[in-house]
Each structure stands twice: as C-alpha cells, then as structure tokens.
Amino acid sequence: MSQLIVRKLEVSTGDENLRRLLNPVSIDFSMGEVLGIYGPNGSGKSTFLRALSGGNYGLKVSGEIWIDQFAITQSVRADARASVVVYLGSDFHSPFSLTVRDLLEMGNGFSATPSHSRISEVIEALKINEFMPRVLNTLSDGERQLVMFARCLIQFPKVLILDETFSKLDLDRLMLVGRVMRQWCERGMTFLVASHDLNFLSEVSDQMMLLKKGELLAMAQVHEVMTPHFLGELYPGVPLQVVRSPESGKLKILY
C-alpha cells in the first residue's frame, strides 16, 4: 500500500540564527486519506506543511520525505514535484486581471492543457460555473479560495496540502468542499488539511495530528486525538467540551 512517510523532519529558520521551528517529526500515513493538522497559532503547522511540500520557503529542512516512494527534497525539479505534492495557502491575488476561466483552463507549466471533461467535472462538483467569466480579483476571498482549490483538483497531484485554504469559506461551501475531498480521496488523492476549525477537521479527516510549540503532540484516529486530555494540553485552562454529533456520529467541540 502506498504511503506518505516522513522521517525526522526538522525545520529551522534559513537565516544565521537557525531558530528551531519544528522538532523532529516522523509519521506514516496511508495515501488516499485525509490528514487533519491542528494546533494553536505558531505551533508549526505551516512550517511542517511547507517543508513537506519541498518548496523553497527560505527554511532549512532536514530529514526524509517519501510520497509513494518518491523522495521530496528542495532540489527536486519543480515540475516533477508539482505532480506529486502541491502546497496551497489561503491568500490569493493576481497582480493582473485574470478570469476564472483562464485560471482553470491554463493548466500547469509542465504538461498539456487539462482535458475539458476533467475541468467541467471539477466545476460541477464545486458548483463554480457562475464564476467562470469573472475576473479573479473581483471574487470574494472565500470564492477565490474555492477557485484555487478547484485549480488544484484539476492539476491532480498525489498529495494536496491545504494550509488554511478554506479559512474564509461559508458553511454551505465548507460542507461541499468536505464532500468533494472525500470523493477525490476515492480516486486516490491525499489531502493534508490545516485548519482552526476543529469541527470541520473532525468531519473530513481520517486521522488527525496535533502540534504544539513545534512539537508533534499526537497523531492518531480522530476519536483518539479529539479528547479533553489532548485539547486540554493545547489550550490549558480553556473550558472545552467534546460531544458526539447525533447526525454524523463525528466528534464536535463546544466552547
């Protein structure tokens, strides 16, 4: 079975201070599933995900990353890397006037233009047909996040990293995105999702990872991680309650 394997991934700032941002992390994760990543601000979520993407973010990264037997490092060519892993943040602006249609149809820098059936499938799944003729920068932040997510589904990397990508999405669309993620999982795509919306993570994730101050606190099934014990460690003194949703049977948090 194909796996995402991380061995002793360690990250420091790229400058001369070499401040440690992430202590060594080792994980094994099955491809075709959703991994939720949760932690307070500054706990190292983005650092971990950026390092995992192999992109050049001015970080000093050591350790090994294997995605489906493909080693990810900063020296791997960008085109080879982008078909394996793509990192998506949350803030998208084009300095130029670019329509949604152009963005979705232009494909990537390394392969042929994506097929029309693949594009229209994603457009339909995410219900973004009405955005197509619009200029990207005239959409709201949340709509733009949705369009960029669509862009990445069309590119179809093995692993899609979503770092707070849905931070400005409304409830309806958030649920839709969750369903679409599950559908694309069945086609073999893997999602790593960082979010501050614990209830959303619990809804979509197969496993969850908790980070605290650059340290891996726990990684396991959602019901093993989303407990008063672990959440108490993340937010000591904050009154939190974990309940099970009568509808979906998933764990939810009340505060």
């Binding site: 960008a78 982008a82 793509v86 998208f92 152009d102 232009m106 960029m148």
Partner: peptide
C-alpha cells in the same frame, strides 16, 4: 500570473 508564491505549485 497568480504571483510568485504559487509558481512552484504549478510545476515551474
């Protein structure tokens, strides 16, 4: 066209 942050994500 989406700014430099996304260039590598598009495989360039």
């Amino acid at each position: 066209l989406m700014g430099e942050g996304l260039v590598e994500s598009f495989g360039v």
